[in-house]
Design a protein around this nucleic acid. Structure first.
Lengths: 129, 129
DNA sequence: TTAACTGCAAAAGATTTGCATCCCG
DNA sequence: CGGGATGCAAATCTTTTGCAGTTAA
C-alpha cells in the first residue's frame, strides 16, 4: 500500500482549506499559501488539492466555468454568488426540499441537488451608488 | 456597423442548438454538425457559439466543470444530470420559490437562482442491473 | 467586388506529468 | 537509507487568434 506523508506544503494547504469561509480557486489557494511558503509551486497546489479531494477532505464546486474547492463535512449547504464583487458565500439554509429517492416529474430519481443563488451580497448592498 | 452573414455553418449550428433536448458540449455540437458539414473546423464552432451567445440566442451552462450551451427563450427551467449515463436533461418544473428581490437569511438579495438535480434518468432506471 | 467567414495552424491559458532532487519516517 | 513529495519545465488539453483563401450579398 502507498504511504502518504505529512509535509509542510500539505499542512499549509490543508489549513487554508479548513479556514476558508467559502470555496476557493486554485490561484487563491496558491496565493494564500505563498505567505507561508514563498517557493511553493503551482503543481504542488494542484497535486495536493487532488489528493485532498481523493481523500474526501475537500471537493470541487464549479461556478461560472471556474473550478473552486471547499472543505467537505460542512453538512448540506449551497452557494450564493455576488454579481457585484464576484465572491462566493456558503449558505446554511436550503431553499429546496428534495429527499434522496424523490421521483421528479418525468421519472427522474433524485439522489442529490445543487443550488446556487445569484444577486447582491450584504457588503455590496451596503455600498452607496 | 458590422454586418452578420448567414452561412451554411451558422445555419447548421443554429438548427442543432434549437433542436437539442438539453444543453450540449462544444464537442457534441461539432460532432453533430459534421454529419452535414464534414470539414467543419472546431474554431468555427467556438466562434459561432460565442456569436449566438452574444446575440442572446443561446447561453452557457456549467456542469461538473464542463461548459455546455443551450437555446435561450425556453423560459425558467433547471437541469437534471444523470449520474449513470452523463446526459443532461431540461426540467420544466422548478423546486424552489424565490422571486427576484427575495432577501435570503444573512442579507443576501436574490436576483436569480440555478438548480441542478443529480440522480438516475428514466432510461437508466429502466435498465436491468 | 469586397468585407465577413472559414479552416488550419500557431498561440494562449489551465492543468498534468517527467524527472532530478529533496526530505519525511 | 529509500520511497514519497516537490519544484521546474515540458507536455496536454481546451479555447482563442492570425492569416490567407473563400464566399455571401
Amino acid at each position: 500500500m502507498t504511504a502518504t506523508r505529512s509535509t509542510r506544503q500539505r499542512d499549509v494547504i490543508t489549513r487554508i482549506m479548513q479556514a476558508a469561509q467559502g470555496p476557493l480557486a486554485v490561484a487563491d489557494v496558491h496565493d494564500r499559501a505563498r505567505s507561508d511558503l514563498p517557493g511553493l509551486g503551482i503543481a504542488t497546489v494542484y497535486r495536493t488539492l487532488k489528493l485532498l479531494t481523493d481523500q474526501g477532505r475537500i471537493h470541487p464546486v464549479t461556478l461560472d466555468g471556474e473550478t473552486l474547492y471547499e472543505a467537505s463535512g460542512q453538512g448540506h449547504h449551497h452557494h450564493f454568488s455576488c454579481q457585484d464583487c464576484g465572491r462566493v458565500f456558503t449558505l446554511h439554509t436550503c431553499p429546496v426540499a428534495l429527499p434522496s429517492g424523490t421521483v421528479y416529474p418525468g421519472g427522474f430519481i433524485v439522489r442529490a441537488h445543487e443550488v446556487t443563488l445569484y444577486g447582491q451580497c450584504p457588503d455590496c448592498a451596503a455600498q452607496p451608488g
